[in-house]
């Protein structure tokens, strides 16, 4: 271990920072956007909505992200129909494939969390909306989802950390994010310890920044302890 290599490793690892942030933020945002309709579908009365969502989350959560990355990046390109489709310009780029795979993964996990939180909103909230004549759409947009997302802020903050850590797998499909550049550096210098320690510290720092950000959001928007108790079943 040498301080000299540590110092040389810092600028190298920082070269990957931008891609790591791009993958993390894009996958996270895309994942959250997909999680909402999926979560609603998981909760829907109609089996035609519920079943596809259940199969999706089963497949995604049941298989490793690394395998999914390989399937999307290497696998889909084998199919001529995919190569001729309008999606090919996207699916041919490793960066986009990485973002898509991680986003699909994050969405599957978040969908379960969203569905669970929706189930936990006291029934009285919907009943109050119905008795006031508030439409289904506004019941969700104005009453249920604002409560769900306020409650889920800690989970969402946790999810962005998980997405950040997942982004390191993107190095397996040639993306030179933090882990990718660290591996390349190791191949040249045969000094894995210094560069991966540096990379680890950088991941910790990014994670800390995200955690801090979400703490602020929670402090501003969280509604812990404000739920009215669930009405007992009174006849």
């Amino acid at each position: 271990m040498s301080p000299d290599i540590f110092i040389r490793a810092i600028p190298i690892v920082l070269q990957g920072l931008q891609l790591t942030l791009i993958i993390t933020i894009c996958s996270f945002v895309l994942g959250q956007l997909l999680a909402l309709p999926l979560g609603l579908a998981r909760q829907a009365a109609s089996p035609l909505l519920r079943w596809p969502a259940a199969v999706y989350t089963f497949l995604i959560r049941g298989s490793p992200l690394l395998v999914q990355l390989f399937i999307i990046y290497y696998g889909l390109g084998q199919i001529p129909a995919v190569r001729e489709s309008v999606f090919w310009p996207i699916l041919r780029e490793p960066l986009y494939c990485g973002i898509i795979a991680i986003a699909l993964n994050s969405a599957a996990y978040m969908a379960e969390v969203v569905a669970g939180a929706l189930k936990r909103v006291p029934k009285g909230q919907s009943e109050a909306c119905i008795s006031l004549g508030i439409s289904r759409r506004h019941r969700f947009t104005d009453v249920l989802l604002p409560q769900v997302y306020r409650e889920l802020l800690p989970n969402i903050g946790n999810e962005i950390i998980l997405v950040l850590k997942s982004s390191s797998l993107a190095s397996a499909i040639t993306i030179m994010e933090i882990t990718g550049v660290a591996r390349a550096f190791t191949a040249r210098t045969f000094a894995p310890f210094e560069v991966f320690i540096t990379a680890g510290i950088l991941y910790l720092a990014i994670g800390f920044a995200f955690t801090f950000l979400f703490r602020q959001l929670e402090r501003r928007y969280g509604i812990t302890g404000t739920r009215t108790p669930t009405p007992e079943a009174s006849a």
Partner: peptide, 11 residues
């Protein structure tokens, strides 16, 4: 309708 548990919107 007025409910036993009020059912105000907490947010």
């Amino acid at each position: 309708m007025v409910f036993q548990q009020f059912n105000l919107f907490p947010h």
